[in-house]
Amino acid sequence: MDDRITIIEGPPPVFEEVDDGWALGLNESPNLYHMALTRLRTFNGTALVERCHRMWRRQQPIYLHFRNPLGLEERVPILAARSVETPEGQVLFLWVRHKHEEAEEIGSDFEDRDDYNN
């Protein structure tokens, strides 16, 4: 399906707090959302970024589908995507958006970071 990127195997994605000015600009909305970045290893990063671009050109959302630590399926909208070639292989950077209350549930990763409360 073209409206999603699905994590088929491996652990759930780790979401990191976003504090880049340009990425926070993606969050402009009448609703309160939380922006996060996740990095995923992939074999076809360029094709996945192109899939995002096709959906955005049609003004349609595209989602990251994954299983949370409890094994339940979740999805979050992808707002930006980039693929980077590294010595270990391709890495897909996805900037995603959570509603504020969802961010609190998923956000335990943020609370564990030393620099989160500084």
Rank of each mutant, 00 (worst) to 15 (best):
C52K: 14
L26S: 05
F66E: 02
P13Q: 00
D20C: 00
F93V: 00
L94K: 04
R97F: 00
L72P: 01
K99A: 07
H34L: 01
I7R: 04
D3A: 08
P69M: 09
P12V: 03
G107L: 06
I7S: 02
F93Y: 11
R113K: 11
E17G: 00
C52R: 12
R54H: 13
D19G: 00
R54C: 08
W95N: 01
E73W: 15
P61Y: 01
G25S: 11
E9K: 14
T86F: 09
H34I: 04
A23R: 11
L94I: 05
Y63F: 15
M35P: 02
R67K: 14
R57F: 08
M35I: 13
P11R: 15
R67A: 13
E16Y: 05
E9A: 12
E88H: 05
S108C: 06
E105I: 04
M55C: 13
P87V: 10
E73C: 06
N118F: 13
Y63C: 10
Q90P: 00
A23K: 10
F66P: 02
E50R: 14
E74P: 01
T6A: 15
N31H: 06
D114T: 05
W95S: 01
M1K: 09
E16V: 00
A47S: 15
R54W: 12
V96S: 03
P12K: 05
E102Q: 14
R67S: 11
E88L: 08
A36I: 02
G107H: 06
R51C: 07
G21S: 13
R54Q: 15
R58Y: 02
F43R: 11
D2R: 11
V84M: 12
D109H: 10
E16Q: 06
I8P: 00
T6H: 11
E101G: 00
D2T: 03
E50M: 09
Y116A: 13
S29M: 07
W22D: 03
A80W: 08
L79D: 01
Q90Y: 07
P12Q: 01
N117A: 09
I8C: 07
Q59M: 12
Y63G: 05
E85H: 12
G21M: 06
D20M: 02
T38N: 06
A103D: 04
M1T: 10
